[in-house]
């Protein structure tokens, strides 16, 4: 059993340093209760990966992470035969005839994250990060793992999970995921939090920050987000900004400070220009 109820999930995630809203807590609870993977989408930097880490921390489970990238294949995601070892074994066998087992045994199997997660006996959180970066074929590979928690190895047979891991998939929507993956997962969209929750997050993440400064930062970031920008500042950027200001020992956010440190939050020239203009930062 992972979490007792959505409320319990929220409070235990909060203890692990992750402030979850109701939808997030409910999804985390359902992922455990229904034993279904959760697909987490949302803008970059809202804490998608952090959610998986927090679930692992709060349930004292081990985190197994599969970082996806273009060109990721079976050999990196599932398992691989250690052919160097197999080769040596075959050569050595000629001298020691008492070694007569085949070369497709457990000792030649290199387990990769997906297989590792399935074979673990202890509670495990499997994080499949940025699944949108992979090719479509890998998605097909994942389907068996996601729906039945099993892996078929032609030489060994099917390995079924002794203890189902809690699976979290994250996506930045660089590519449409297939219906098949979506259907097998619970879906959670994490958006930018409201001002109150974001302030709590900043206070929790940044050491030695004043309450008022955190409030000012979050207010300004929210004002910036209400503009129509190319890249909206995320929570990660609010936290960076807070750290910057703490490091610079600036206690209050006035227009001059915002103007000089805007590069921490906005990373496009046109966005910066727009923010300066709309927030009335520079006096002519």
């Amino acid at each position: 059993m992972w979490f007792e109820s959505p409320d319990a999930a929220a409070s235990r995630l909060a203890e692990a340093g992750y402030l979850a809203d109701q939808a997030t807590a409910t999804s985390a609870y359902l992922a455990g209760a229904l034993e279904k993977p959760v697909l987490v989408e949302g803008p970059a930097g809202v804490g998608k990966t952090e959610l998986a880490k927090a679930i692992a921390r709060s349930t004292e489970a081990e985190l197994v992470r599969l970082q996806c990238y273009e060109g990721l294949d079976e050999a990196r995601a599932l398992y691989e035969w250690d052919y160097r070892k197999q080769l040596l074994y075959i050569q050595a066998r000629e001298q020691t005839p008492e070694w007569d087992e085949g070369i497709f045994g457990e000792q030649f199997l290199l387990t990769r994250p997906l297989l590792t997660a399935i074979r673990r006996e202890q509670p495990t959180v499997l994080l499949i990060d940025e699944i949108d970066k992979t090719d479509v074929e890998v998605e097909g590979l994942l389907l068996e793992v996601l729906s039945d928690f099993q892996v078929s190895i032609p030489e060994l047979g099917t390995i079924t999970a002794t203890r189902r891991p809690l699976v979290v998939l994250t996506s930045n929507a660089a590519r449409e995921l297939s219906e098949a993956v979506r259907r097998r997962c619970l879906y959670l969209h994490i958006d930018y939090p409201d001002a109150e929750r974001e302030k709590q997050i900043v206070l929790g993440q940044v050491e030695g920050i004043e309450d008022t400064l955190a409030g000012e930062i979050v207010d300004t970031v929210h004002r910036i987000r209400s503009l129509e920008l190319k890249k909206q500042p995320s929570i990660a950027e609010s936290i960076d900004w807070a750290r910057t200001l703490v490091a610079l020992q600036i206690g209050t956010l006035d227009p001059a400070v915002v103007d000089s440190t805007l590069g921490v939050v906005l990373k496009h020239v046109s966005d910066q220009d727009k923010a300066v203009r709309e927030l009335g930062l520079r006096k002519k």
Partner: peptide
């Protein structure tokens, strides 16, 4: 709201 979140997690797969 919990019911809403439950439904949303299971049947809405696109934002």
């Amino acid at each position: 709201e919990t019911v809403r979140a439950g439904y949303a997690a299971t049947v809405v797969k696109r934002e």
